[in-house]
Amino acid sequence: MNHQAELRLQAWLDGELPPGGAQAVAAWVQRDPEAAALARELGATKTALLGNEPERALPESREFYWSKIERELAPAEAPAPAHGRPAWLRGWVKFLAPAGILVILALLLFGPMLRSHHRPTLASTAEVESPLDDISSFTFDSESEGMTVIWVNTE
């Protein structure tokens, strides 16, 4: 007997087959000794399990056990208590909080750009570009002498 047939037999015993299918399996069990033997075995197992399921005793009464679970769930479902702010203030807070975040983001994004344009650097660091490959340079800052030197090397 293949596995599919065994599963079909189990489904018949559990009452999960439609009427037509159940009749077909019943007829099959009637005529096939192997199927009948398996049906008896599965039925006996089912009866034994149903009648001998161990009872798990709770450490406390059922009502107390479930009330604990209910208490754990209750705060997550309850609405947040009112903080006592007036309604008009709550409206402003809802507006100002995201606006404040936007302001901070803008400062972070544009702050360095504004600083670089409005606060001239005192450092004498010079930016150097060398358009020609055969000309190189190195830059030297002498803070003690107040001098920035760009030494140009021509090859």
Partner: peptide, 12 residues
């Protein structure tokens, strides 16, 4: 020939 460009702080 254009050999070098550099930028310097005016304030410095």
């Amino acid at each position: 020939r254009w050999a070098k460009t550099f930028r310097q702080s005016v304030k410095a």
